[in-house]
C-alpha cells in the first residue's frame, strides 16, 4: 500500500521525498487542490470512500498517516 501511495504522490510532486516528509499539509507541500485530486486517486485505487470528515491535516501529513486512514476505512 505504501509503495502505491508514494507512486501516486510522486505524480503530484516528483521533487518531494515522501518517505521522510511528516508535515505535507501543515508545511503547505500539499495544497487543497492536491488533496482533492489525491482523495480521488485513493478512492479508486484502494476502494474506499474518503469523506470530508477525514480531511484533517493529521490524516495527510505523512504517507504513514494516509496508510493508517486507508486501513481504517477498509476495516
Amino acid at each position: 500500500m505504501k509503495e502505491t501511495l508514494i507512486q501516486i504522490l510522486k505524480d503530484f510532486h516528483p521533487e518531494v521525498d515522501f518517505e521522510t516528509e511528516t508535515a505535507l499539509v501543515s508545511d503547505g507541500i500539499l495544497d487543497s487542490f492536491d488533496i482533492v485530486s489525491l482523495v480521488a486517486e485513493i478512492n479508486s485505487e484502494f476502494d474506499v470512500t474518503v469523506g470530508v470528515d477525514d480531511l484533517e491535516p493529521e490524516n495527510f501529513d505523512s504517507v504513514d498517516a494516509m496508510c493508517k486512514l486507508i486501513e481504517e476505512l477498509q476495516g
Binding site: 503547505g28 487543497s32 482523495v39 469523506g51 480531511l55
Partner: peptide, 22 residues
C-alpha cells in the same frame, strides 16, 4: 490566499470547497 485572511480561506476550504469537490 493561504497567507491573507487565513481563517476566511480555511472556512471556505473546509465548508465549501472540500464538500463540493468530494
Amino acid at each position: 490566499w493561504r497567507r491573507w485572511h487565513i481563517t476566511l480561506g480555511a472556512w471556505m476550504r473546509d465548508y465549501v470547497f472540500y464538500p463540493l469537490s468530494l
